[in-house]
Design a protein around this nucleic acid. Structure first.
Length: 268
DNA sequence: ACACTGACCTGCGAGC
DNA sequence: TGCTCGCAGGTCAGTG
């Protein structure tokens, strides 16, 4: 669920709320969330201060005194800032006790999320083979033309590939293709340079707008920290019955195992 | 080397 | 009413 705009929203909210606080204790209730030894995770984090906040693709990075704390929310990971005495919400898996007397709690219904520690010299640029940030200059028309040339898969599958661009997920892939008026099933290498240009331009536009709206909240999920995104209100096709642009019927198919919405009238 | 599939998980809603 | 089943989707290991 959380894609680039949602992760960005979580990051900015956490930065405002916990920057400068010290981790006084860590409780790991579900060890599988932690990569590596949970006891070591706890020991190394205790006493560390939240110094800086970064996002790379869908990964959150917290810069501590002498290490990085990485957190990936996967599908439904959320952070709640609660009072120490607040009752534990179901599916709370990691609890950080903070120096300001609150606790930051990681909650994840489907238990897909991950956390890990990295040394301070970790290179976020090359982390995990991630591609360029779609909102950065590195994600250019020139880059995309070269990258798409060799890809035989449907263009939507390439958009979902984090090595092509970091942070695009299922919802925004559909929205970007709708905005660019390109069919999701089109084989990537068949896109003309003009179409690729539209794709890059639309990706930036859609993601920028989504970040501005605080991301997307779909179905009954409320996002973390009481922040509710509004982007779903302006989706062109994803989750829609009719195309927001032409009013025609939105089609739903499956690409790389994912539900894919598109408008056969607007997209070619 | 690349592309695709299933597993990981739980909750929810549709259908019977 | 209560059961089963399919679906939601980010990532990664495994397969072809």
């Amino acid at each position: 669920m959380p894609e680039l705009p949602e992760v960005e929203t979580v990051l900015r909210t956490l930065e405002k709320r916990i920057s400068g606080t010290v981790i006084e204790d860590v409780e790991v209730l579900l060890p599988k969330i932690i990569e590596g030894d949970p006891d070591e995770f706890r020991e190394r984090l205790t006493g560390q201060t939240f110094r800086a906040f970064h996002r790379r693709g869908k990964y959150l990075f917290f810069r501590m005194d002498d290490l990085w704390l990485m957190s990936h929310l996967c599908m439904e990971g959320k952070y709640f800032l609660q009072k120490l005495e607040d009752e534990l919400i179901k599916h709370t898996h990691v609890i950080f006790t903070l120096s300001d007397g609150t606790s930051m709690r990681y909650n994840d219904v489907r238990r897909f999320g991950r956390m890990a520690l990295y040394p301070p010299d970790l290179d976020l640029e090359t982390f995990h083979g991630l591609g360029p940030e779609p909102l950065s200059d590195g994600f250019s028309e020139e880059y995309a033309v070269t990258a798409l040339k060799t890809r035989k898969e449907p263009v939507k599958a390439v958009l979902l590939d984090q090595r092509f661009a970091a942070g695009i997920g299922n919802i925004y892939a559909d929205e970007i293709l709708a905005a660019a008026a390109i069919l999701p099933e089109r084989r990537a290498y068949t896109l003309t340079p003009e179409e690729t240009g539209r794709l890059v331009h639309s990706a930036k536009e859609v993601l920028r707008e989504a970040v501005k709206s605080g991301g997307t909240t779909i179905r009954s999920y409320t996002s973390s920290l009481g922040v509710t995104g509004l982007f779903q209100l302006q989706c062109l096709v994803h989750g829609q019955k009719t195309c927001r642009r032409c009013g025609g019927e939105v089609k739903r198919i499956r690409i790389s195992g994912r539900s894919t919405y598109f408008c056969p009238e607007c997209q070619r």
